[in-house]
């Protein structure tokens, strides 16, 4: 009886969550749909997509022994195309060993430090980005599906609050552009829905590959807010909220964006 009740409660909770999503599933649109024809063509062709350079680099790193443990990723995980198939679509995710919600670059960096006993790097370091791109590439086309209940609940609620709060001298909240005004013009740009499907993405402005955390920081810079440091937990919280908000959209990493 109590089990039936808890199932009912969980169903109600998930139904409530589904209703609260600011953009209904039928209206979800990846950022690539707001991009120009040149950027769309660049992303669509792997021989043109510069993000694939990081995927290739990540593939090499996957098989390269590193750190004091002198092990490579394949020593534990085996073939990435099997072991990492679809995995990136479930990140950010609560990690029991680390006791917090981590995004994919942070999970890979934890593996590097822990299992490989490699020297610590920033999650924005080129090698971490390359491995993230390689793992995310294995989840191309897989719909985003993240857990926001249980131990991830706190991070999710903090992320949702951050998304709805006004930031910076512009006094703008994420929701004001990306929920209330997407599809409209902001100077030369079309405002996107702020979906995280492309990341790690090659941004032409960056002339390189960057993480979702870096993209969120760039948005905060845009509204003239104080930027959190690259590995700040609030960036992961927002990333979790964004992933939940985008549930059902397929990953397209490595994407190309302006």
């Amino acid at each position: 009886m109590s089990r039936a009740l808890s199932v009912f409660v969980v169903l109600c909770a998930s139904a409530a969550l589904a209703q609260e999503r600011p953009i209904p599933p039928s209206a979800l649109r990846s950022g690539i749909e707001f991009a120009g024809a040149d950027v769309r063509a660049m992303q669509a062709d792997d021989a043109s997509n510069p993000g694939m350079l990081w995927v290739s680099r990540g593939e090499q790193l996957w098989a390269a022994a590193a750190g004091a443990a002198d092990r490579n990723c394949a020593s534990c995980h085996g073939d990435a195309s099997v072991a990492m198939r679809g995995v990136a679509a479930h990140y950010p995710k609560f990690d029991a060993a680390l006791g917090r919600v981590v995004d994919l670059p942070a999970r890979i960096e934890a593996c590097r430090r822990g299992s490989q006993r490699a020297p610590a790097q920033s999650t924005e370091a080129d090698d971490v980005l390359a491995l993230t791109a390689w793992v995310a590439y294995q989840a191309r086309g897989v719909p985003i599906a993240v857990a926001v209940d249980g131990p991830a609940r706190g991070a999710f609620e903090r992320g949702r609050a951050f998304y709805g709060e006004r930031h910076g001298q512009m006094n703008l909240a994420c929701t004001q552009c990306h929920d209330q005004n997407w599809g409209k013009r902001l100077l030369v740009e079309t405002i996107s829905q702020g979906q995280p499907t492309a990341f790690p993405a090659y941004r032409l402005e960056w002339q390189g590959l960057g993480s979702l955390g870096r993209r969120i920081r760039a948005c905060l810079f845009g509204v003239r807010a104080q930027m959190p440091p690259p590995d700040a937990p609030e960036l992961t919280d927002v990333a979790l909220y964004l992933a939940w908000r985008a549930q059902g959209l397929p990953l397209e990493a490595p994407g190309v964006r302006r």
């Binding site: 021989a47 043109s48 510069p50 694939m52 350079l53 290739s56 680099r57 002339q207």
Partner: peptide
């Protein structure tokens, strides 16, 4: 580790032009 991606059609036709594409990962600072 080569830091480039090469794209060539396979196979190519004899005496007919084919396109070679190469991307090199470099910051071009």
């Amino acid at each position: 580790m080569p830091d480039a991606r090469i794209s060539i059609p396979t196979p190519v036709k004899r005496d007919e032009p084919f396109e070679v594409r190469i991307q090199i990962r470099h910051p071009m600072e």
